[in-house]
Amino acid sequence: MADVHASIGAEENNDMTFRQGARDCIPTLLGYISIGIAAGVVGVAAGLSALEVVLLAVLVYAGSAQFIFAALVLNGSPAAAIILTTFIVNLRHFLMSATMAPHFIQYSVWQNIGFGVLLTDETFGVASGKVQLKRGVTASWMNGLNVTAYICWIISCAVGALFGNWISDPEAFGLDFALTSMFIALLVLQLDAIESTKINHYIRLILCIVILMVGFSFFVSSHMAVLLATILGATIGVVTEK
């Protein structure tokens, strides 16, 4: 119960302002910028107009889904296949939203809809790390984080769509690794916040997920593998904890 009180009282917490949320978004921006530009370039290359690329960024707001959308449009896939693929690729966000939602029940329905619409892998990673540190996460902080990421993503996609031809290959600068190294750092920060008595349990769980991912990669797409490995992994985590 103490946590609930902490997060209700946290609205007055000066640490968790909109501005602080925006500041906490900064480490993720390199990932957003490089992948957003790439998504813009790929979209235009697939025959989308710059405006359509920006619409995708504004309305769908999901990196991997935007890449796949462009690829499927390019090879003339039927609309139903494109919609279904987008749904599956983004379904992992359901799990992320479910994880975040209990921490925001004191806020209004519209605030909660806003948190949901602007949820991405990156903002989830940052926010779930903050939640784990038992620092009450406020709506203002969450909005600062989300809006900064959203605006940066839209601008990056637009830049990629408009100036893609003049930008050299971002992979040459290692920028595609920004996302991976961000996930690694978020994972390490999560583990760092775990009590030392439970750390072995979590390390074993991580090994389980690695094996599950490799195993699932024989049968399903990588997006489906992420979904299945996470659901199964969390279940193993609960069942095997003491």
Binding site: L187, V214, F218, A234, G237
Partner: peptide, 28 residues
Amino acid sequence: ALRWLSYIPICILTALVVSNVLGESGPL
């Protein structure tokens, strides 16, 4: 359910890292 959800961040971040490690040319 809350305990199950508390495992989601670590599980999903691990899965995302692994999905970046797995190559695109088939399993293994």
